[in-house]
Simulated assay, not measured.
Amino acid sequence: MLKIEHLTKRFGGLLAVNDVSTTIETGKINAIIGPNGAGKTTFFNLIAGVHKPTSGTITLQGDDVTSLRPDQVAQLGVARTFQTTSLFDMATVLDNLIVGHRLRTRSGLLDVLRGSSLLREEERICREKARDALNFVGGSHLENRMAGDISQEERKRVAFALALATNPRLLLLDEPAGGVNPDETQGLAELIRKIVKSGITVCLIEHKMNMIMSLADKIMVLSYGEKIAEGTPAEIRANPVVIDAYLGSDHADA
């Protein structure tokens, strides 16, 4: 799905990502782990076009996307969620989600002023796609709730639905289980499996190691901006460099 070669990002004197090469494999649950400040979110921002790399290349299914803007990357099928779920709290959940499919529409200001048939049809499609995405994540009962009134776990599901409404091929999840309890974490893990079964490739950043070790097909470990290991959960759990840098002896014995 995605090929990253020698990716480097400097912010002044800070080397946030240093010569990282990896692949995000199609149809798999790919994970990125590492201590705070390891460069994980910066790595996501480079893929999504938020930051431009200092050097290196990013290729999406054969197309060079290294220098594209975030909206252009999204148009090609890369969606993401964020550590903090930001919604329009004074709007309904459904109205929040309608924004997602606007990425795929063609109507403009002139259509709005005229109330064109194209605008009306695209609004219908956006509403339909929003409902489909909300139903997929198990949140159809939230449709008419104000976004500011729903729980943290429900906000996470709505964030998933917002990303899914853009019709992605690759979904980047930044700490999708942050701030939720163990039962809710398990539910979100099941949702991630469901997303992959539907044909969407997933790459996630997460600090909950029990979740990652039971969920991921492939894990890359970053430390101080550098890739220090990559492999299956079993390989990562047994890697002495990773144990020393991040996991600790408890995971080595697991």
Rank of each mutant, 00 (worst) to 15 (best):
N45V: 02
A91Y: 06
A229R: 00
D250Q: 14
L247K: 08
L109E: 11
E184G: 08
M90H: 11
L171S: 07
L87D: 08
G179W: 00
V99Q: 07
L68T: 04
T26V: 07
N96F: 00
P35E: 09
I236A: 07
C126S: 15
A16G: 03
D64T: 01
L60P: 01
G115N: 14
V137W: 12
V78E: 03
S151N: 09
G187N: 13
I29Y: 04
H6R: 15
I212P: 04
Q72G: 07
F160P: 00
V73F: 08
N210H: 10
M211Q: 13
L170T: 08
V65G: 03
I205H: 03
L204C: 00
R106V: 10
N135T: 12
L76K: 15
S107I: 09
D89W: 05
V241N: 09
D111C: 14
M213A: 11
T84N: 14
D253Q: 15
I32G: 02
G49F: 07
L113Y: 10
Q152Y: 13
V112R: 14
M90V: 07
E235D: 14
G37W: 00
I98G: 02
E122C: 13
I125K: 14
A79K: 09
G37Q: 03
R104Q: 13
R124A: 15
D132C: 07
Y246F: 13
A147K: 07
